[in-house]
């Protein structure tokens, strides 16, 4: 999923201060799962903002709503009348949702309430970690199901650097060495010798090197 973290309240106050009526818009997808911008977080932020603003003598009408998916034009269309009634929107979705709103409601100020972080997975309750960088040409089949692009701090594709120690990356004891994980998996699979195969320089065009990417499915596109 796409992970996100809420921005500090002070930053959000600066965004909304000039307005009388705002819409706080959550999203029911990834940001709900990572507890950054779902219905619950919309409610919490609304009261947090309200209290902080009142302390500064500012009164703003904060309306709340959560869409099924902010990155989908169909759902974004649902809120035409709601948008008409407010001066600005604070989106609690990832960057994709914020942009979807900005493209649809061209004359309405839209602000992000979260910092979109990475594509990751849940390690345990309350902990998410990066797993994929969307390089567009998956090599997990060759690396035992562990991604060196997303998980090696140097994106090394041919083995661990000289800083791997005790299973940790040289940058932090809190970070696993991706190549230690890959090596452990190759051993478990009996594929140790495949390590000697050189992975050639990557073609980054599939990974954004040739500009913003798009998928067009002819069988589905209207």
């Amino acid at each position: 999923m796409i992970t996100a973290e809420r921005k500090p309240l002070e930053e959000l106050i600066e965004y909304v201060k000039p307005y009388k009526r705002i819409l706080l818009l959550g999203c029911n997808e990834c940001v709900t799962v990572c507890a950054a911008g779902g219905r619950k977080e919309v409610g919490l932020l609304a009261s947090g903002l309200q209290m902080a603003l009142l302390k500064s003598g500012i009164s703003i009408d904060i309306r709340q709503h959560t869409l099924e998916r902010q990155c989908d034009p169909e759902y974004v269309e649902e809120i035409v009348s709601m948008i008409a009634g407010v001066d600005a929107v604070v989106s609690m979705a990832c960057g994709c949702g914020v942009q979807q709103l900005a493209m649809r409601y061209k004359d309405k100020p839209i602000f992000p309430a979260v910092n979109t972080k990475f594509m990751g997975a849940s390690e345990r309750q309350g902990v998410w970690a990066e797993r994929c960088q969307g390089c567009g040409n998956c090599l997990l089949g060759e690396t035992g199901g562990i991604c060196p692009i997303a998980r090696c701090a140097k994106q090394l594709m041919n083995g661990p650097c000289g800083g791997s120690a005790g299973g940790h990356c040289e940058i932090s004891e809190d970070v696993d060495c991706a190549w230690q994980l890959i090596w452990d998996r190759l051993k478990a699979l009996g594929k140790e010798e495949s390590f000697v195969e050189i992975t050639p320089a990557k073609d980054w065009r599939s990974g954004g090197g040739s500009g913003p990417r798009k998928i067009i499915r002819e069988d589905l596109a209207e």
Partner: peptide, 8 residues
């Protein structure tokens, strides 16, 4: 940057 690695 790490466009390529040391082996590459």
């Amino acid at each position: 940057v790490h466009d390529i690695d040391s082996v590459q």
